[in-house]
């Protein structure tokens, strides 16, 4: 594969696709295949879900409100690049160091990885790393998301990575569980291959979190001639939701008709998902084993093709 050492970015060209990782923005800014761009913006850290009726009833959203800010803003602290298994110091990657790279053998490589390190905009701060790895003989780009918690923060609504795809999905299909699944609502799910036309609107009277699919091994998203595939790289798969609106937009909507017209697809890949609860009545908390303890560590690995 070909590596492009930019002044603020690392470009990779491999198998008819090209990728741009923006040092200053903390992630993959461009994923282009056959002339189509698949990313609207650099992916962001996902920490918020739109308040469910039960979240409101038991006060979860109030207790965990600071994660809404952390979802909206994140702070990239640094990045590291490895090419063919050897770390390339960031001083060599940015100017003037990259001047030496114009005639470097590193411009042709068999493998490259770039990991971005983040601090959550909370006090105290938890840390997150997102590693993107590309290998000559493997399709697409592998993403390893890892959250490392600290004591002293409230429970997490969700923990993962959110991509905005610059199109309205026509259909998506996945290998995983039927219906909508949360950690405390898995019992009825049946493993299989499922398909949804378009992006589903919120099935609940008042708009709130919806559409989570846990333990997914593969997800395919289609729009016109565009096709994106997400494959699990860990044994128990990944959790995803693919929605027509951001959690903030869902939070601010009372009804589906309050949502913005569908332009983009919001793909959240989660390392941890909170349950939805409702055990004895409105207003009681989600069962303990369906909480996300923010002092824990959570990771998810997947491949985007």
């Amino acid at each position: 594969m070909e590596i492009v050492f930019g002044d603020l970015s690392l470009g990779v060209k491999k198998g008819g696709a090209s990728y741009i990782f923006a040092y200053n923005l903390g992630g993959i800014e461009s994923l282009e295949k056959e002339g189509n761009e698949y990313l609207y913006r650099v992916p962001s850290l996902a920490f918020w879900r739109a308040t469910t009726d039960n979240d409101r009833g038991n006060g979860f959203s109030k207790r965990s409100a600071l994660w809404m800010g952390a979802d909206a803003f994140s702070d990239v602290e640094g990045y590291e690049v490895e090419i063919d298994g050897t770390e390339v110091p960031s001083a060599s990657l940015i100017a003037p160091g990259n001047n030496e790279l114009i005639s470097s053998p590193l411009r042709k490589a068999d493998s490259v990885s770039i990991v971005f390190h983040f601090r959550t905009c909370t006090a105290p701060s938890a840390s997150v790393s997102v590693r993107y790895s590309l290998e000559e003989d493997k399709d697409g780009v592998k993403v390893d998301y890892s959250y490392k918690g600290v004591p002293g923060l409230p429970e997490l609504p969700v923990c993962g990575l959110r991509f905005i795809l610059p199109f309205k999905t026509e259909s998506f299909e996945w290998d995983g569980l039927s219906g909508e699944t949360y950690p405390d609502r898995l019992y009825g799910a049946v493993r299989g291959h499922y398909r949804t036309e378009g992006l589903p609107l919120c099935p609940y009277a008042m708009v709130q979190e919806y559409g989570m699919h846990m333990h997914t091994s593969e997800l395919g998203i289609k729009c016109m001639n565009k096709e994106l595939c997400i494959k699990a790289e860990s044994d128990d798969g990944f959790s995803f939701s693919l929605l027509p609106a951001s959690p903030m937009a869902l939070e601010n909507a009372y009804h589906n008709i309050d949502l913005p017209p569908q332009r983009y697809s919001y793909l959240t890949i989660a390392a941890a998902v909170r349950g939805v609860g409702g055990i004895d009545s409105w207003g009681s908390d989600v069962g303990k084993d369906a909480h996300i303890d923010s002092s824990g560590s959570y990771s998810v690995s997947f491949r985007i093709i």
Binding site: G6, D7, L8
Partner: peptide, 12 residues
């Protein structure tokens, strides 16, 4: 400020 080929071609 970036040149329009940033991340796409390495040029001087």
């Amino acid at each position: 400020t970036m040149y329009p080929w940033e991340g796409k071609e390495m040029l001087r």
